[in-house]
Simulated scan of single mutants.
Amino acid sequence: MISGAHVIVYSRDAEADRAFIREVLEFPGVDAGGGWLIFKLPPAEVAVHPTDGEPRHEFYLMCDDLDAQLAELAAKGVEIARPVSEQRWGRLAALRLPSGAELPIYQPLHPVAHSL
């Protein structure tokens, strides 16, 4: 039986991004050995989208109130990399990780499956 999913985020500064996830996003985690941190994620869901190009994978954080979440993160000094935009499927923004990469975050307007 499948017991979970493991998401990998590649980073040019993994140590700084791990600290961000631990200290700013406050995700609990375990040390898998030698300081290699693996974090517990909130409930998740997966969608499969068609593509004409090369297949790729994306990782988005989800929240119930995007404006409140962004305000809380901004108060912690997090840079909002992309301001809120209205999509037909939700309200989308992005956070700036310490490595410089963007981490999308959105408030879904579609039915969610993560709590089924």
Rank of each mutant, 00 (worst) to 15 (best):
G53R: 09
D52R: 13
G100S: 10
A32G: 12
L109M: 11
Q69S: 11
L95M: 00
Q69I: 03
D52F: 07
I21C: 08
D65K: 04
Q107H: 02
A16C: 01
R56G: 13
K40D: 15
S115I: 09
G4E: 09
P43V: 10
V9L: 15
I2K: 07
F59R: 02
K40L: 13
G34I: 03
A16Y: 06
H6S: 13
P42H: 09
Y10K: 11
A71H: 04
L73R: 02
A101L: 00
W36A: 10
A68L: 05
E15H: 05
I105G: 02
V48W: 09
V9Q: 12
E23Q: 10
A75D: 14
S99G: 00
S85C: 11
L95I: 05
Q87H: 03
I21Y: 08
V112P: 05
H110M: 03
A14I: 04
V48M: 07
S11M: 04
L103F: 11
M1R: 10
I21G: 07
P50H: 08
A101W: 05
R91V: 11
H49N: 13
R82E: 15
P104D: 09
I2L: 07
R96H: 02
L116K: 14
L73Q: 02
I105S: 03
G33S: 03
R22W: 08
A16D: 06
F27V: 03
L25G: 04
L37I: 13
R82V: 10
E58P: 02
A19G: 10
